[in-house]
Design a protein around this nucleic acid. Structure first.
Lengths: 118, 118
DNA sequence: TCAACATATCAACATTTCATAAAATAATGA
DNA sequence: TCATTATTTTATGAAATGTTGATATGTTGA
């Protein structure tokens, strides 16, 4: 019996060549930040474009201030949130433009990896 | 001086209400699987729709067989890969339909969280 | 300047993930 | 049945990540 041979299906025209597709550092940080349920819940708190302080986020999620601060920092580093200081308070909000960019990069990356129309 | 008040910007019509948006278990597994550079590199090996065995993946990435098998399992669990057995060999390939679904769910989720046109 | 408030940072510990090696399981042909 | 091949599973130690509590830093008004 002949062993099955691994199949290489050529990429159809229009899909470009095999990747070259690699995720940039930005999209990688984005994925890392998003791959935590707590941080997803955190992100959801900002829905509708509102700004929140660290303390409020901590209260609403029922976690410690320090934990909230650190997780918010990861979301900021991952390009999901941005922040500004106003006096003693730091306000975080969603960075929609950056999110759109990372999402587009992820989409392009996955499309480059995936055969079309599975 | 009055402390700044946290701003709640109402969601414009057409964006639906505040989320309700939560990621399903599928999209969460998807993100987790993708949030590893080694697993990204693994996924890239399958570009163009080819099928590969565990052993081949291990060789090409220069990792151990057991490590490859476990990482492939995570990619499969995350809906990025699917597999079939043919005799002694198990062939993995990208599950484009599942990837598209998770990507769409992620997009919808993030759009639900994000104010439009930042 | 100082105390109060808000946050960021640090260090330690807890938990999870990662990679390895061995063992177990699945499939095959002699 | 058995040896070989391919993969999955298991157990373990190391590494990474998550959480906590304390400390450091930044801002403010008295």
């Amino acid at each position: 019996m002949v062993e099955p041979v691994e199949k290489a299906v050529p990429a159809p025209g229009g899909c470009g060549t095999a990747p070259a597709a690699q995720l940039g550092a930005g999209a990688r940080e984005f994925l890392k930040a998003l791959a935590s349920e707590q941080r997803q819940q955190m992100l959801e708190l900002f829905a509708g474009g509102i700004e929140l302080t660290v303390g409020t986020v901590a209260e609403r999620l029922g976690v410690g201030q320090s934990n909230a601060s650190q997780q918010l920092a990861l979301l900021r580093r991952g390009g999901l949130l941005t922040s500004r200081r106003d006096g003693k308070q730091v306000f975080y909000r969603i960075d929609s433009a950056a999110v759109d960019r990372s999402l587009a990069e992820l989409r392009d990356y996955l499309h480059a990896c995936c055969p079309p129309g599975d």
